[in-house]
Each structure stands twice: as structure tokens, then as C-alpha cells.
């Protein structure tokens, strides 16, 4: 298996403050790596280096074996879906237009865009005849998030980048979304890099978990190994799970 994304000694400083220190991490094809950490641990910054929304101060990020700085940024970004809280949908475009955006940028023919949009909205449980012509303001939080994921998948990119996509949802909707996402990711066979501050989510969705503390990788482990981890930050996160869940039964991803 080849590394789809590779961080090599990545450092990031802003205003004399070090946000990330010497990060080395590989994301293999078709695995989901959860970037777990508290607020301010640098996990979002690390994610944004993959699609060059942030450039590292030193070190290198590679995608498909090539440094991201050697990629044309437009081409690079169209090879990876990006999902953020609330989906970041275009409020002035319909659901169908939002989902079909990248295919349209890529110059797909109308008919193919329509077929792809229909397929993805169906997969999200939001049939196009019902939802396609709605605007984002007419959707619930969970629906917006599903459209956001459909949009990220639209041009069939090999990689998905997700930045706390379910954090703003109520617990029940969040759980449904997490299950749906796990199913979809397997069905579509995507590689994903996933930022979260929720250890349940990381255990449920991550093939591996990379735990960040104050800009350093404290531990990178498979979900079933992570629950055995004894490092200070891992222990702190595991403690939030409460009794009876430490046996790894949540590690379904």
C-alpha cells in the first residue's frame, strides 16, 4: 500500500508561536486517520496543509508521492474533497448545484453531472426530486452536513479531508451521521483524514488515531491499540469515555 498523504518533519509557526512541531505522519490508501486533539492542538492547521490552505513553515507535505508545493493548487484541491462544520454550502445555490459544483468546474457534461448528483443524494438518503431544488437555508443541520459530504465526493476524489464535520449536530443526529459516514466510506473506498476532538468519533470512524498535544504527535495507533494506550493525553481522552466502554467495543471503524 502506498502512502496517499505524507507529512515529513512539518513545522508551523505564526507570530513567533509554534503551532506544530516536527510532525511525521503517513496516511495509507483507503484508511481513515482521525486527527484527535483538544482545541488549539494544531489538528485543523495540519489538515489544511494537505490542500494548501496553510503552508508549513518548514518540512514537507506530499500527496500521491509528490510535494504539494509542486502541484498546481487548483488541480491539487480538485483531487480532494473538503468538509467543514455546517458543510460550508453555498447559500445562493440549490442542493443539486452545491453537489454538482466540482464536476461543473471540471467541465463534465450536464447529463453526467445530473446523474452523479442524483446518485450521491440517493446515497445520502436525500432523494434529488425532493431535495435537489432546495436551498441550504431550508435544510436541517444534519441534512446540510450530508449535502456537504455529497459535494466532497462529487468528482470522485481519492481523498477526503474532514474538519469536525459533525461537531455542530445534536448527539442523536451526530451518531446517525457517523454511522452513515462509516458505511459510505467503505462503500466508496475513500481515504480520509478526519479532524475531531471527540474520542468516541475517533474510535468509531478511524482506522488509526493520531493524537496531537500542543502541536506534537503524542501517539499514532490503530483504534483497538489506542484504547490500551497509557500516555498522559491518551489517558485524559480515554477517561472521557466513562465506565464500560474501554473494552474497545466502539472500535467499529
Amino acid at each position: 500500500m502506498a502512502a496517499l498523504v505524507e507529512f515529513r518533519a512539518v513545522t508551523y509557526q505564526i507570530g513567533g508561536r509554534e503551532i506544530l512541531h516536527g510532525i511525521d505522519l503517513c496516511v495509507q490508501e483507503s484508511e481513515t486517520v482521525a486527527l484527535l486533539g483538544r482545541s488549539g492542538s494544531g489538528k485543523t492547521t495540519l489538515l489544511k496543509m494537505v490542500n494548501r490552505l496553510v503552508e508549513p513553515t518548514s518540512g514537507e507535505v506530499r500527496f500521491e508521492g509528490k510535494p504539494v508545493t509542486d502541484w498546481d493548487p487548483i488541480r491539487l484541491r480538485r483531487r480532494m474533497g473538503y468538509v467543514i462544520q455546517e458543510g460550508g454550502l453555498f447559500p445562493h445555490a440549490t442542493v443539486a448545484e452545491n453537489v454538482g459544483l466540482v464536476p461543473k468546474l471540471e467541465g463534465w457534461p450536464e447529463e453526467r453531472i445530473r446523474a452523479r448528483t442524483r446518485e450521491l443524494l440517493d446515497a445520502m438518503g436525500m432523494p434529488a426530486p425532493v431535495y435537489g431544488s432546495r436551498h441550504p437555508r431550508q435544510l436541517s443541520g444534519g441534512e446540510k452536513q450530508r449535502v456537504g459530504i455529497a459535494r466532497a465526493l462529487a468528482a470522485d476524489p481519492p481523498l477526503l479531508l474532514l474538519d469536525e464535520p459533525f461537531a455542530a449536530l445534536d448527539p442523536v443526529t451526530r451518531f446517525e451521521m457517523q454511522q452513515r459516514f462509516a458505511r459510505l466510506r467503505r462503500a466508496f473506498g475513500k481515504t480520509a483524514l478526519f479532524v475531531t476532538h471527540d474520542i468516541r468519533e475517533a474510535l468509531m470512524l478511524g482506522t488509526r488515531i493520531a493524537l496531537l498535544k500542543e502541536g506534537r504527535l503524542e501517539i499514532v495507533a490503530r483504534a483497538d491499540e489506542f484504547v490500551q494506550a497509557r500516555s498522559p493525553e491518551a489517558t485524559a481522552f480515554l477517561a472521557t469515555l466513562g465506565e464500560g466502554t474501554l473494552d474497545g467495543s466502539h472500535a467499529t471503524g
Partner: peptide
């Protein structure tokens, strides 16, 4: 324009003109 919307537009590979 909402920062999340603009960031999504950049991240989806839209050019400055688009």
C-alpha cells in the same frame, strides 16, 4: 461573505475569478 463558504470555495479548487 461567510468565511466557511469562502474557504470551501478555495478548497474545492475554484480560481480567484470563479
Amino acid at each position: 461573505v461567510d468565511a466557511g463558504v469562502r474557504e470551501s470555495a478555495v478548497a474545492m479548487g475554484m480560481t480567484d475569478g470563479q
